Amino acid sequence: MKKQLPFERGEFAARLSAVKKEMAKRGIDVLLLSEPPNQNYLTGYDSLSFYTPQMVIVTLNHDEPIWIARLMERPHAAMGTYLADDNIRTYPDEYVNSHAGLSAYDVMADLVKELGGEKARIGVEMGGYYYSARAHADLVRALPLAEFIDADLLVNWIRIVKSPAELVYMRQAGRVADAMVRRAFDTIEPGVRECDIAAAVYHQQISGTPEFGGGYDSSCLFFGAGERALTPHPQWTDKPLPASTTIYMEAHGVRLRYQVNLARTIVVGKPSAPYQKFTEIAIEALNVGLESVRSGRTCSEIQAAYAQALARHGYEKEARLGYSQGIGYPPASAERTASLRKGDNTVLQSGMCFHMMAALWLEDRSICITQPFVVTNDGHEPLTSTSRTLVVK
């Protein structure tokens, strides 16, 4: 089968080298990766197969990672990863949702033993979305002589800094997000059903741009009109838009699993003067936060600049200001690493990507105008070009 890889082999080699270096630093002999973004990062594997047990295994003394999942997924792994055939392993389908007491993790444990890891220090992603209590219990039972180490976020912290090749896809994902938001602006009119607007936005998400297509996102389109615009994660209904309403929407542009989030508030009808002022305050604070971004500053310092700008007008944002993002798989695009919030002393580095979620959700009103960006040595580069303004239809 012909390999279909999003990056050159050297890109994957550099990633693997960085992971092995961190493993050695922590005294980890074998690393079991259950999180789809980390599996993708190290091998290129991309298939919606993670609802069944699958792992990427990294050992210090093995040249390549080893991928293991159910048998039917092998062709995709053969095409979508750079791995040699012997490093693509499978287990029979009888282990999937078995009612006979079979555990796929027994097969994975046997593979660990084959790699010399029977008595090893084994790192696992204890906080991962796809590493269940049952998975851990089965592995501990099957490898009683091994020592299990919590290696959650080991790979996440490495992939927080994007390579130049990754930034190409992040910029393209940003262009898809721009196209999705423009499609929403063009479709929103009084009388149009919310679900029809969502359908148009989803069409744009998959269609992408004339130069390249898009993909599915890590969660879903957030779309709420009227009172539901006061909530951060609303979904559309089949109700037609009234002649006057407020809409909150967050779109997710995706390019080869790299995701960029972008949110806007749209007003149908004429916004009141107090709401216009509220919007201006939110945009001012967002811009102050963005202007404070540069390599060498901490996440906490960025949040403080934004918070001070809000405080001058008597407002406070309780939730974090933003989060790092890159490769996105369900259920979330955030990398679970750095957040733009008070007390997060992560030092910004050139190549880190964030979604500055400068949204204010109050009991009686909300405004959400956000900006995804990549950190540069002397500032930031916006990943989208949609104007940071309130949209009035």
Rank of each mutant, 00 (worst) to 15 (best):
I283G: 08
G128E: 04
R336G: 06
L115T: 03
A78N: 14
G27M: 10
V161H: 13
P242R: 14
G117I: 08
Y129S: 02
Y315H: 13
L42Q: 10
E381Y: 08
E8H: 08
R159M: 07
T376G: 10
K342D: 15
Q303L: 03
A13I: 08
R257C: 13
S385W: 03
E114M: 07
L310D: 01
T384W: 01
T209M: 04
R74M: 08
R9F: 01
A142S: 10
G296E: 07
A319E: 08
S350R: 15
E11P: 11
I122F: 05
V192F: 03
A282F: 04
R264L: 02
T346H: 12
H76P: 13
A243E: 04
D378S: 12
H355R: 06
T231V: 01
G128Q: 03
G80V: 08
I247C: 08
P190E: 03
T187F: 06
A78I: 09
I266M: 03
A358I: 02
D150I: 11
S17W: 08
E211F: 04
A334Y: 06
A243W: 14
Y306C: 04
H233E: 02
S132N: 13
V192L: 00
Q205G: 03
N40C: 15
I327V: 11
S17K: 14
R320L: 04
T389S: 00
A146W: 06
K342R: 15
E301I: 05
Y41E: 04
P271V: 05
K25Q: 02
A319I: 06
L230W: 07
V254P: 00
A18I: 02
E318F: 06
P372S: 15
